[in-house]
């Protein structure tokens, strides 16, 4: 039984396809593997949001914003995106300039998301100015180094590897945001999540588009599949997200 949030997401954003052919077929086939993971992400995110709603204090807001700031804040994002800008060689630019154009867009998105997290810390009264975060290791801590390293390394494997990460992981981000927004009424938290949602959607859809349009041969599909396999390993990022549902069930 799929969570209604996931079913809606699949119907609106995953299944409509602008291209026919081996790329779209590959994506839709691979998606079958993700559906249980994405479903668990929704269950876990709803559970966690409800726990937070019943919390006796607001530390979770501060911790969430600090985690967000370190994870997708300006410092980390600029590193991630720059490696990907450089992953397209000049002779390949005719084919892959869209990757660079979308990275240029994404680096701007992600640093803005850092601003949103900083905004929460400012409006919540936890800091008086953003530069205080330079002295707080929680705002810079790289909590999941293998994942951030992956974002830097995949472009060196194949320009389309990144599409796999965008498709699988940014869908996770969208589903979590939608789940949180479905239960949270706190204006500060809604501001933090709502304002990011469409940009995370865009990153997901960019992955969807690149797979549909470009992953046409086994040689181009293989590196994308490898990224999916990695993220779905028991110690991979997507599997880790889905574990929240197991926690919820206990």
């Amino acid at each position: 039984m799929l969570e209604p949030i996931l079913q809606d997401f699949l119907d609106k954003w995953v299944y409509p396809t602008g291209f026919s052919g081996p790329g779209a077929e590959f994506r839709l086939k691979e998606t079958e593997r993700f559906i249980p993971v994405w479903n668990n992400v929704v269950i876990g995110a709803l559970h966690k949001a409800n726990e937070q709603l019943n919390s006796e204090n607001e530390d979770w807001k501060r911790n969430g914003a600090l985690g967000g700031y370190s994870g997708e804040g300006p410092h980390m994002s600029i590193k991630q995106m720059s490696t990907q800008l450089l992953s397209v060689s000049i002779p390949q630019q005719a084919k892959y300039i869209d990757l660079q154009r979308m990275r240029a867009r994404q680096v701007w998105d992600e640093v803005k998301h850092g601003s949103l997290h900083a905004d929460i810390l400012l409006r919540g009264g936890w800091i008086k100015k953003e530069t205080e975060l330079l002295d707080d290791p929680r705002a810079a801590n790289q909590g999941d180094p293998a994942y951030f390293g992956l974002t830097a390394m995949v472009p060196h494997i194949h320009p389309l590897s990144r599409a796999g990460q965008n498709y699988l992981e940014e869908a996770v981000a969208c589903l979590r945001l939608i789940s949180v927004l479905s239960v949270m009424e706190d204006p500060l938290v809604r501001h933090e999540n709502d304002s990011q949602l469409l940009e995370e959607m865009m990153h997901f859809i960019e992955g969807k588009y690149q797979i549909d349009a470009y992953a046409l041969t086994p040689e181009d599909q293989e590196p994308i599949k490898a990224v999916f396999d990695y993220l779905l390993r028991p110690w991979g990022r997507s599997a880790a997200h889905a574990k929240e549902a197991e926690h919820a069930k206990k």
Partner: peptide, 28 residues
Amino acid sequence: YYIYGGWAMGINVNEYPATVDYLFSKQL
């Protein structure tokens, strides 16, 4: 893209306040 990518690779965590990253990303 290649110039800014190369420059951005050389901005390390906490080397500058976030303003520097924000403005550079917009320029890119």
